[in-house]
Amino acid sequence: MFETLNAHSDPESVRKAAREGFLNGPTAGLASGFVQVNLVILPEADAAGFLRFCQANPKPCPLLAVSEPGSRICKALAADLDIARDVPGYRIYRNGVVSESAADVAGEWRDDLVTFALGCSFTFEHALMQAGLRVRHIEQGRNVPMYQTSVPLTSAGGFSGKLVVSMRPFAAADAIRAIQITTRYPQVHGAPVHLGDPSLIGISDLNAPDYGDFVSVGDDEIPVFWACGVTPQQVLVDSGVEFAITHRPGHMLVTDIPDNSLALF
């Protein structure tokens, strides 16, 4: 069953595959048509501050849902859901450092943990492909390339840092179309934040992403950069949080929310 996971898979099957240990790779291209989310899981003592940070930085941190403290379910995301087990890979942070990766975090769960679900650009990729645009990392079976930038975020709630972006290359005409399409999805990062010369946002080498996998950019193509939901992960490190859990970059929680429900028009 799980060997056939692909764009046509339903969200529950993807979550079940992750829960049972059969899926441990990136979720780009899986369960097309359904929203994928980034996760940030923090103790309740830090949750109010992080909420203010998201509100101050809606482009990289578009907030879709917040759980009750200690709850491993969130009906706003899916009916059959275990937040501690339904992601293909997690990161655990201790004292501002990524201390380990894990296939599930049930053993780390605490009664005071609050889950923040943030929009992910994997969601609008379905709309791009429906429009006939080619998404390079999906074609190549890779994780999307992600880069740290020099763009400062708005400090709030005790959190601060710099923007992380994801990159997809397009020919000029396709880049314009991609901008038009993704603008319709502000809850999953919306329109790009930059296109063209990566050095203008502090990226020195496109061939060496900080997260994800390298993809080629043709001589006739423009690199297009979107705000990325990995941004909070870097912020957790920069802010030195005592304890936190996130997804591994590119290893998202697949929800039951249809993509088109987030489109503005």
Results as ranks from 00 to 15, higher is better:
57 N>E: 13
129 M>D: 08
47 A>H: 04
46 D>T: 11
217 V>D: 04
258 P>K: 06
52 R>W: 02
170 F>L: 06
96 G>C: 07
44 E>P: 02
103 A>G: 15
87 V>R: 13
140 Q>N: 12
210 D>C: 11
216 S>V: 02
244 A>L: 01
124 F>G: 01
236 L>N: 11
127 A>H: 10
52 R>K: 12
133 L>A: 13
225 F>I: 00
131 A>D: 15
264 L>K: 09
86 D>C: 11
209 P>W: 00
148 Q>G: 11
252 M>Y: 06
55 Q>M: 11
47 A>S: 15
156 A>R: 11
30 L>G: 06
248 R>D: 06
62 P>M: 03
214 F>P: 01
218 G>R: 04
215 V>H: 00
80 D>V: 06
243 F>P: 05
189 H>I: 04
103 A>T: 11
174 D>H: 14
161 G>A: 09
39 L>P: 08
31 A>Y: 02
31 A>R: 07
236 L>I: 11
130 Q>A: 06
68 E>Q: 14
174 D>P: 09
127 A>N: 06
92 I>C: 10
173 A>R: 13
30 L>P: 00
53 F>L: 10
12 E>N: 03
48 A>I: 07
124 F>W: 15
183 T>E: 13
91 R>G: 10
185 Y>S: 07
180 Q>H: 09
113 L>A: 03
34 F>S: 06
7 A>Q: 13
219 D>G: 15
207 N>A: 15
221 E>L: 03
142 R>M: 03
213 D>G: 01
9 S>C: 02
93 Y>E: 05
184 R>C: 12
189 H>L: 12
103 A>N: 14
23 L>A: 00
41 I>C: 14
168 R>G: 00
83 I>E: 06
116 F>C: 06
164 V>L: 02
145 P>N: 08
53 F>E: 10
240 G>F: 05
84 A>T: 05
249 P>S: 08
100 E>Q: 15
156 A>Y: 04
189 H>R: 11
75 K>Q: 13
182 T>V: 07
87 V>N: 09
262 L>R: 07
48 A>Y: 04
195 L>F: 15
150 S>A: 15
228 C>Q: 12
73 I>A: 14
58 P>E: 03
2 F>H: 14
121 S>K: 11
239 S>K: 05
232 P>I: 07
61 C>L: 10
154 T>W: 02
60 P>D: 08
12 E>H: 11
253 L>I: 03
58 P>W: 01
42 L>C: 13
194 H>Y: 12
175 A>Q: 11
94 R>N: 10
107 G>A: 10
36 Q>G: 06
108 E>R: 06
89 G>L: 13
1 M>W: 03
62 P>A: 08
31 A>W: 00
184 R>V: 04
187 Q>P: 01
226 W>P: 04
221 E>N: 00
131 A>W: 02
241 V>E: 06
7 A>F: 09
131 A>Y: 05
204 S>K: 13
26 P>L: 03
159 F>E: 02
132 G>A: 14
168 R>N: 05
241 V>K: 07
66 V>T: 08
172 A>S: 12
32 S>R: 14
39 L>W: 08
9 S>D: 02
231 T>H: 08
95 N>K: 14
265 F>E: 13
131 A>V: 02
206 L>Q: 01
57 N>S: 05
88 P>F: 09
105 V>K: 03
253 L>H: 05
71 S>Q: 10
51 L>R: 15
197 D>L: 10
